[in-house]
């Protein structure tokens, strides 16, 4: 059974309640600070990306988040009906200059995600983006 299974409207303001839900389940499961850090940050990066770019902050759209513990991993699945976008490919670390000039908006978030995750996969199914984030416990 999933530890968390909820949908949120495509709005940046909703991200604080996501962080609160993750903190609560992390405490209940006794996950290490390192694993909680990776989950909080990668979810923030990916959901921000989906809300801003795939769904263009259209609050009538929703995003589903499912968090499970499987073996020695926290496995999180995020589904949205936005523009297709595959974050699983190799990320070329952007230069700080590119980040700060805004030329590659979102690029730093993807770089940080790849740094913290033990695995990331992507599927496009029935007009949905399904991204799976894996974090070692």
């Amino acid at each position: 059974m999933a530890l968390l299974d909820f949908t949120l409207p495509s709005s940046i303001e909703e991200l604080q309640s996501v962080a609160d839900r993750v903190d609560a389940v992390a405490e209940q499961q006794g996950w290490s600070q390192k694993a909680v850090f990776a989950l909080q940050v990668t979810l923030d990066e990916w959901l921000s990306n989906v809300i801003t770019y795939s769904l263009r902050e259209d609050t009538s759209q929703s995003i589903r988040v499912v968090v499970e513990e499987s073996g020695q991993e926290v496995v999180t699945q995020v589904e949205d009906h936005g523009e297709p976008f595959d974050p699983s490919g190799k990320v070329v670390p952007e230069t700080l200059d590119e980040t700060l000039s805004g030329r590659r908006e979102g690029g730093m978030g993807l770089f940080v995600m790849h740094h913290l995750l033990s695995g990331i996969s992507y599927e496009r199914q029935d007009n949905r983006n399904i991204v799976t984030l894996r974090i070692s416990l």
Binding site: D23, Q33, V36, F37, Q40, V41, D44, E45, S48, T99, L100, M108, G109, V112
Partner: peptide
């Protein structure tokens, strides 16, 4: 501060 994501880094910068 338990976590800082890239949005936080951007603000600091």
């Amino acid at each position: 501060a338990a976590t800082v994501s890239s949005a936080g880094l951007r603000v600091m910068f």
